[in-house]
């Protein structure tokens, strides 16, 4: 079957089996390998990305269900060559070791800070509690997110309006991501 969706601001389409998981579509067909896969049971959270602005475990979503929806992955956190404060926080506070859980953790963290710019430690722990890290013991992940909360990105004066953003996406469609 055919699916079309917006991934990191660009329209993409693919020919898929109806049973294909979104995590496999993103990784294997779009080559966006920052999103990882770590379990069979929706327990680990290494596959977390955003669908329509909400973090989801992409191993639990069929690619077909994402048809017509908007996907955002870790590859989209960096903007104009500048790391997102969450990315910078993970670097500054040593919030990662092997890096395997990190993209999922950062996508959840970004969402948390967008909705709660000054979360308490307990709120941070709650937000990432559906995701496993085997390396860090979580302490530095919590600190990384706290760092990001303390260092919000200074937005450029003219934030692109949705219309402008759409224009941008259209402009980019020339380099549309094809199906590999």
């Amino acid at each position: 079957m055919q699916v079309t969706m917006t991934v990191n601001g660009r329209p993409v389409h693919g020919e898929i089996e109806p049973r294909m998981l979104l995590v496999h579509f993103v990784r294997d067909q779009l080559g966006l390998t920052g999103t990882h896969w770590g379990c069979d049971t929706s327990n680990c959270g290494t596959c977390v990305l955003w669908m329509d602005g909400e973090p989801v475990k992409s191993c639990t979503v069929l690619a077909a269900m994402a048809h017509g929806h908007e996907i955002r992955t870790v590859e989209d956190l960096e903007r104009d060559g500048e790391l997102d404060p969450v990315q910078q926080g993970f670097v500054e506070q040593h919030g990662l070791q092997c890096g395997f859980c990190t993209p999922g953790m950062m996508m959840t963290a970004r969402w948390l800070l967008d909705h709660n710019p000054h979360p308490s430690e307990a709120e941070i722990r709650e937000a990432i509690s559906g995701q496993i890290c085997r390396c860090t013991g979580y302490a530095n992940i919590v600190r990384a997110i706290q760092w990001a909360a303390e260092h919000p990105r200074v937005e450029p004066a003219a934030v692109p309006e949705p219309a402008a953003a759409a224009g941008q996406a259209a402009e980019r469609s020339g380099e549309e991501v094809g199906v590999r």
């Binding site: 920052g34 590859e75 956190l77 670097v91 040593h94 395997f100």
Partner: peptide, 17 residues
Amino acid sequence: TRKEDARFVRGRGNYVD
């Protein structure tokens, strides 16, 4: 801070899969 983090926080690690 770690040199390797530059790729990991961008989702640019290169794992076997």
